[in-house]
Amino acid sequence: MRGANQVPLPLAGGVRGGASRVSPTARASHALPRPLPRAGGEVLAALLLCISPAFAQPVTPPARYANVQLADPAKEASARALMETLRCLVCQGQSIADSDADMAADMRALVRERIERGEKPASIRDWLIARYGDYVTYDPPLSGLTWPLWLAPILLLGSGGWIARSSFRRRTR
C-alpha cells in the first residue's frame, strides 16, 4: 500500500491488485469513473495521465533500513528471519522480505530499526499482532482457532502409523 496505499485505478475496471482498496465484488460500481463529461479527447487524455500508476507511489524515498542491511550480520540475520514470517499487508501472499510494495518497505525499516535498538523479534511480532491481528504473521500463535494447525499433523502421523502397522501385520501373518 502504498501499494495499498495503493490505489484502485478507476479506469482499469475491477483492478484486483493487492492494493486495491475497493473490493471488486462489493463496490465494483464505485470503482468505475463517474460518467465523463463530454468534453472528449483532452479531458480523457488528461485523466489518463493523472491515473498513471506512477502517480500512486509515495513521493518520498523509502526509509534507510527498508532496503539496507544492518551492519551487524547477526542482527541482520534475526531481522531477516522475522521479516520472512511477517505478511505483507498489500500483496497478501508474500512476506515483507519478498515484497516490493512500499508498505512492506516501511515494515522492513520498522523491523530493522527495532532490532538495531536491541528489541527482541518476539516483541516486535507481538507489537504488530496488537495492531493487525494474527493475520500479519505466518507463524500464528496457538489459540482456540489455530490449534488444529498443531494437532492435525500429529493426528495424521498417528493415523498413518496405525494404518502402516495394520497393513504390515497383515503381510507377516
Partner: peptide, 16 residues
C-alpha cells in the same frame, strides 16, 4: 509521517 511509522502503529494498512 515520513516513514509510515505512525500509520503502522495505528494498524492502518493503506490510504485512505
Amino acid at each position: 509521517d515520513r516513514a509510515s511509522q505512525v500509520q503502522l502503529a495505528l494498524g492502518s494498512s493503506g490510504v485512505p
